[in-house]
Simulated scan of single mutants.
Amino acid sequence: MSEQAAVSIPQGLVEAVRGAKNVAVLTGAGISAESGLPTFRDPQTGLWEKFRPEDLATPEAFQRNPKLVWEWYAHRRELMGLAQPNPGHAALAAIERHAATFTLITQNIDGLHQRAGSRNVLELHGNIARTRCFEEDTLVESWSANGEVPPHCPRCGGLLRPDVVWFGESLPEETFEQALEAAIFCDLFFSIGTSGLVEPAASLTEVARRAGATIVVLNLEVEPLASPDLYQLNGPAGQTLPELVRQAWQGEV
């Protein structure tokens, strides 16, 4: 894999990763795209090509046509269930094993980080594998399989929805507070596969920078840069992160 590394790894970054005690990582759709998952704004295909994602991911859309929204998320859940963690996910799990404290903050809803072995994961936008009641806003583990679409809450009879954050909804407050704390107290902060435009998650990188952390930005749209407190790496996470891990810990993948 090292022969295929997307970018050369600055030696200063290798040393920063090797010496970091408190690491925080923010990931976005880019790292999951390398597992074959379309990003949220990629063109829809098949039955869904006439819909914009924004028309299927709001509370208003669910109230207007709950069956349509449920079936779209069932389609996405199937795609995500078939996807496999890629070497970028595995490399982040390896970094976690070496750090004294490690917090992985993700905007993704696919659960791939956990499947790759990451343990301390904060899901800012929820997880598509979970379900909650639209009325009570509580998680629901099981319900009657009577063919209703969407199914109904066994407690109150309300409609069930995926446990994800829709447009117009706030991030889970406690989860974001934990993410903010991780950004404030880390000495190394990664921003991987995210545009850095979606607030409030985008602000975490700036919070970490102001608190004195070394910042690493890895995506396909940045200009390469290497300085003692900011590294910008242009390349795919699935090639770059494993190479970084190898160089930091002498061969470990």
Rank of each mutant, 00 (worst) to 15 (best):
Asn127Phe: 10
Val14Glu: 00
Glu141Arg: 15
Ser227Met: 03
Gly212Ile: 14
Trp143Glu: 04
Cys153Asn: 04
Glu3Ile: 14
Gly46Ser: 11
Asn219Leu: 15
Leu241Tyr: 08
Ile95Pro: 01
Ile9Pro: 01
Val245Ser: 02
Arg18Gln: 13
Thr175Val: 15
Pro236Val: 11
Ile109Asn: 00
Gln114Arg: 15
Thr194Tyr: 11
Glu169Ser: 05
Val198Ser: 08
Glu252Leu: 12
Gly28Ala: 11
Gly19Val: 07
Ala93Asp: 06
Thr214Phe: 07
Glu135Asn: 09
Pro38Leu: 11
Asn219Phe: 12
Met1Cys: 07
Glu135His: 03
Pro224Glu: 09
Pro150Gly: 02
Cys153Asp: 06
Leu241Arg: 05
Asp55Pro: 06
Ala5Pro: 01
Val23Tyr: 03
Leu188Arg: 00
Arg77Pro: 02
Leu225Lys: 13
Pro38Ser: 07
Leu112Asp: 00
Ala202Ser: 13
His89Ile: 10
Ala202Pro: 03
Thr138Met: 09
Gly196His: 13
Leu218Ser: 14
Glu173Trp: 14
Asn146Glu: 13
Ser2Arg: 11
Glu173Ala: 14
Phe40Gln: 01
Pro53Asn: 11
Leu230Pro: 00
Ser118Met: 03
Ser118Val: 04
Gly81Leu: 10
Arg130Met: 04
Arg77Trp: 14
Gly46Thr: 10
Gly30Ile: 13
Asn234Arg: 15
Trp249Gly: 08
Ile128Ser: 09
Ala201Asp: 12
His152Ala: 12
His75Arg: 09
Thr131Glu: 13
Leu159Glu: 00
Ala90Glu: 13
Gln178Leu: 15
Arg161Ile: 01
Thr27Leu: 08
Leu112Gln: 00
Leu122Thr: 01
Leu230Ile: 09
Val217Ser: 09
Ala183Met: 09
Cys186Asp: 00
His98Lys: 15
Thr138Ala: 12
Ile31Gly: 02
Leu197His: 15
Gln84Asp: 01
Phe167Met: 10
Ala74Tyr: 02
Ser203Cys: 12
Arg76Phe: 09
Ala248Pro: 08
Leu180Gly: 10
Ala57Cys: 10
Ser8Gly: 05
Val245Glu: 07
Gly158Pro: 02
Pro236His: 08
Cys186Phe: 07
Leu171Val: 10
Arg161Leu: 03
Gly46Tyr: 13
Ala237Phe: 08
Arg155Trp: 11
Leu188Thr: 06
Thr58Met: 04
Phe189Glu: 07
Met80Pro: 03
Ser35His: 09
Leu197Tyr: 11
Asp187Trp: 11
Ala237Met: 11
Val149Phe: 11
Pro172Leu: 03
Asn127Gly: 04
Thr175Asn: 08
Cys156Ser: 07
Glu243Asn: 03
Ala237His: 04
Ser118Leu: 06
Pro228Phe: 10
Ser8Ile: 14
Met1Phe: 14
Pro162Asp: 02
Cys153Gly: 03
Glu15Trp: 05
Ser8Arg: 15
Arg246His: 09
Leu244Met: 10
Thr175Phe: 04
Leu37Met: 12
Leu37Asn: 06
Ala16Cys: 05
Ala100Met: 13
Pro224Thr: 08
Trp143Phe: 12
Arg77Gln: 15
Gly126Glu: 01
Ala33Thr: 15
Trp48Ile: 05
Ala57Asn: 05
Glu60Thr: 06
Val149His: 04
Asn22Arg: 15
Arg115Ile: 05
Asn86Asp: 06
Gly196Ala: 09
Ala99Arg: 02
Ala91Trp: 10
Leu220Gly: 12
Ser170Glu: 14
Arg210Gln: 15
Leu171Gly: 04
Arg41His: 11
Glu123His: 14
